[in-house]
Structures are given as structure tokens and as C-alpha cells.
């Protein structure tokens, strides 16, 4: 079956099957920022933004997103320029092994778009569905705070 889905602002069509998991489709189509972690909805490494909301691509059948809009980390850079959240993660050293980073950045994006002045508790809540196995949470939280400042124009 053929599905049409807008990924990072570009309308794409893919051949898929009813039982294909969205995570598998995205990876085979080259969206490698979408990581294969637990595959049971626990770790958040496969997070995407679906119609403006954070979701886990391992919990969706590909045909379910037909006609919908997806953003992956690949869609955050523009003209090879890093998004301020990516910049903040780099500057704060919020990346250790890097496996959780795409999901963390997308979680930060959905948080900061609705709430540019998050409290620390709100940041923790926003990334509560994303596991960092290096346990580098302090720097991740610091990076998200800094990204908020950058996006507000305070830095």
C-alpha cells in the first residue's frame, strides 16, 4: 500500500504494508536520527514530532501517519545551520554517547515551543519519556534551559 506523509516539510510517498512499524520505515528511508532503542515505547530514542506533538515511532504502524506531518531531527537544521537547541546541546556538552540526543532535542523543541520559560521541573517532565543511558541528565537540562534563553533572544 502507498502512504503520503509530510516529513520535515516535504510531502513524501512511501510503499509500506499494514503491519510495518513507522520506526522501521523512517530508518529504511534514511531518517537515521530516529534511533532504534527498546522498541516498546519505554526509551524515547525513536521520538518524532507528529502533528506538533511528541510521539514514539516504535508505537505506530506506518499507515497510521498517512496524511499527517512528521518532524525528525533532520528537519531542524536549516541551510546547514544548527538549530539553537542543537547549538545549546553542543555548547553545554549535553551529548555523551549521543544515542538519546535526537529524542531529547525533539522533546526540548516541543517543550520550548509551548513554554519558552520552563522551570526545571517542567524540563524534567518534558524529557521524562526519554532515557539517557549515560545518565547525563544535568547537562541536558542545562542545555534546554540555555536553548530557551537563546530562543527568547536573551543570549
Amino acid at each position: 500500500m502507498l502512504i503520503e506523509v509530510t516529513i520535515n516539510g516535504i510531502l513524501k510517498s512511501f510503499e509500506t504494508s499494514p503491519g510495518e512499524i513507522l520506526l522501521d520505515l523512517l530508518r529504511r528511508e534514511g531518517y537515521k536520527s530516529v534511533k532504534r532503542g527498546c522498541e516498546t515505547g519505554e526509551c524515547g530514542a525513536c521520538s518524532i514530532i507528529l502533528d506538533g506533538k511528541l510521539a514514539k515511532s516504535c508505537l505506530l504502524f506506518a499507515p497510521q501517519v498517512s496524511g499527517h506531518e512528521i518532524v525528525t531531527l533532520e528537519g531542524m537544521e536549516s541551510f546547514s545551520k544548527l538549530h539553537p537547541i542543537q547549538r545549546a546541546f553542543l555548547d553545554e556538552g549535553a551529548v555523551q554517547c549521543g544515542f538519546c540526543t535526537p529524542g531529547m532535542i525533539l522533546a526540548a523543541k516541543t517543550l520550548l515551543e509551548g513554554n519558552p520559560h520552563p522551570m526545571e521541573e517542567e524540563i524534567k517532565e518534558a524529557i521524562s519519556g526519554n532515557l539517557c543511558r549515560c545518565t547525563g541528565y544535568i547537562k541536558i537540562i542545562r542545555a534546554i534551559k540555555k536553548a530557551g534563553e537563546i530562543l527568547k533572544g536573551n543570549v
Partner: peptide
């Protein structure tokens, strides 16, 4: 759950 789970 988590934000991702609650959204779906």
C-alpha cells in the same frame, strides 16, 4: 506514561 505515550 510519558509525554509521548500520553499524546497517543
Amino acid at each position: 506514561g510519558s509525554p509521548q505515550i500520553r499524546n497517543l
